[in-house]
Amino acid sequence: MIPENDEPIVRFENIGLRYGLGREVLKDVSFALAPGSFHFLVGESGAGKSSLLKLIYLALRPTRGNISLFGHEIASTPRDDLSALRRQIGVVFQEFKLLNHLSAFDNVALPMRVARAKRKDVDRHVTELLAWVGLKDHMQARPPTLSGGQQQRVAIARAVISRPSLLLADEPTGNVDDQMGLRLIHLFEELNRLGTSVIIATHSKQLVERLGYSQLQLTDGRLAIIPGRAEAEAAVAASVETAAEAEDIQNQHPDSRRVAAGEEDLYDNASGVESYL
């Protein structure tokens, strides 16, 4: 289901969205996200962040424009095939949307069961992941008996349990302490390192600035893309490289050519969730 080449994993073309006869909450939104990218979705409350996420996780259809997911144009994809696309998307809902009658374990197991995973695999992966998010002793607890932060971690575990190709999270660290917040962000980065594209909607400027990923910035329904630190550095490196190449040509000295270093593997030992991932 993941596009094999560099075809965008999400593509929006001139998307407009309005609820009923109300004003347009998204206006001419166009963007394309490469597989394996990491983006923050930022904007004031009411700017349309949740609506944009809903369009991506196929809870809404746009009023106008085209959406493609994993190379499939949604408008022309048969309804029966949308379930398979949804299974490639992990969502951390802002209001969690946990099923209160199920235990934390069963909530996290849902995506695997829906995908007809083997019971043995479900038991192993869910147990590992819940232990990793610090809920080892609450596996059989029902969501109403858990704190807001614990519920949020169950919701995150449910979103990532199936190793989705695309992870969408709406304020995923809003209810947890800083240490757990960082731990969860590390989990998202680890998934991203393994190929999952990530979009995190957040109000936390501190988080955005600290991690320095690209931003999808919504202002009154209009989208602007702000390049991340890596992209900005790459752009600078590219311009330096171009200048150096020009100098090389001028000096006829091939050894002076500089090659950008490979990406550093930051989290090889940081997450401790490799066995699950």
Binding site: Y57, L58, A59, D80, S83, A84, L85, R86, R87, Q88, I89, V91, K97, L99, H101, L110, P111, V114, A115, R158
Partner: peptide, 16 residues
């Protein structure tokens, strides 16, 4: 309705 919506959004087939 809400629980069904969650199942639907995590990719459950109608048949499921």
């Amino acid at each position: 309705r809400e629980a069904i919506e969650v199942l639907h959004l995590i990719g459950a087939h109608d048949e499921y």
